[in-house]
């Protein structure tokens, strides 16, 4: 384990239940700066719930989330975004009627000094800020390869582009930790290759610390340093891709108790 001082995100045994359903139990996570962690598990294992707990959509019943040494448990989502935790959504949630550029510009919102009065009077600083926002939004669009479509409405983009736009929007908040919820879902193999390259590039250029939910085992096993496996809300394994692939509990979770097939099966099940 890395020393705690280096950890950007520390999750200490958070739990959440909905009625009788224990969606997440005793979830622990320590993300060192610059790391890339995978979060996998069968459908309904509680992966997205973990994201929702981290980003404040739900409040954890117990446990705490610490981001960069600052307690963010139970804060409202916008404060958590301000603290530096940003996410993409499994079921894409773009601002459909707005332009692609505006979607990313909105991501810059949280770092901006915007104010109603400044917007109306258009102070010099306001103008400078708008320019800076536009410049940084265009740069991010360039990174994800959407600069050419900046003025289109977001809802008119193809699926894969929408996923990449979500990543750009999340990056625009200048996050300490980026949570990606199934970024490869619905992408074809070519796009997946590009996505892998994109994620590697984010780590290099932006020093991004990433937590990744993904069903496509090819992507996960290839790029993640460590992987956490959830099943029925419980963490059943954690380790390097190789360790996880050979872990009997993981195979059981993916294939059922009496399965004796190898990890290649497990991989193919997840990849939709």
């Amino acid at each position: 384990m890395t020393p705690p001082t280096d950890a950007v995100l520390e999750v200490r045994s958070i739990c959440k239940s909905f009625g009788g359903l224990k969606a997440v139990q005793e979830f622990n996570l320590t993300l060192p700066r610059g790391s890339l962690r995978g979060l996998i598990g069968p459908n309904g294992a509680g992966k997205t719930t973990v994201f929702n707990l981290l980003t404040g959509v739900y409040k954890p019943d117990v446990g705490s989330v610490v981001l960069g040494g600052r307690e963010i448990t139970g804060m409202r989502p916008f404060r958590i975004a301000g603290a530096g935790l940003s996410r993409t959504f499994q079921n894409i949630r773009l601002f459909g009627e707005l332009s692609v550029l505006d979607n990313v510009r909105l991501g810059c919102h949280v770092r901006a000094q915007h104010g109603v009065f400044r917007s109306i009077v258009r102070t010099p600083f306001h103008r400078g800020e708008e320019r800076a926002i536009e410049a940084s939004a265009r740069r991010l669009l360039g990174v994800v390869g959407l600069l050419g479509r900046a003025d289109e409405q977001a809802k008119n983009l193809p699926y894969g582009d929408q996923r990449r736009l979500e990543i750009a929007r999340a990056l625009a908040t200048e996050p300490r930790v980026l949570l990606l919820d199934e970024p490869a879902a619905g992408m074809n193999s070519q796009e997946k290759v590009a996505l892998r390259a994109l994620i590697q590039r984010l780590r290099k250029e932006f020093d991004a610390t990433i937590l990744l939910i993904e069903h496509d085992m090819g992507v996960v096993m290839d790029i993640c340093e460590r992987i956490t496996v959830l099943d029925y809300g419980k963490t059943i394994a954690e380790g390097t891709p190789d360790e996880v692939q050979s872990n009997p509990a993981v195979i059981e979770a993916y294939l059922g108790a009496d399965a004796d097939a190898g990890s290649s099966h497990a991989a193919s099940k997840g990849g939709r």
């Binding site: 975004a81 959504f89 773009l94 601002f95 707005l98 909105l106 919102h109 949280v110």
Partner: peptide, 22 residues
């Protein structure tokens, strides 16, 4: 302006808007 984009984002998707720090 940033304010207006925040307004419009609430209209488009309140959850995403909140998640983006609005």
């Amino acid at each position: 302006s940033a304010t207006g984009r925040a307004f419009l984002s609430i209209r488009e998707d309140e959850i995403a808007s909140e998640a983006m720090g609005v």
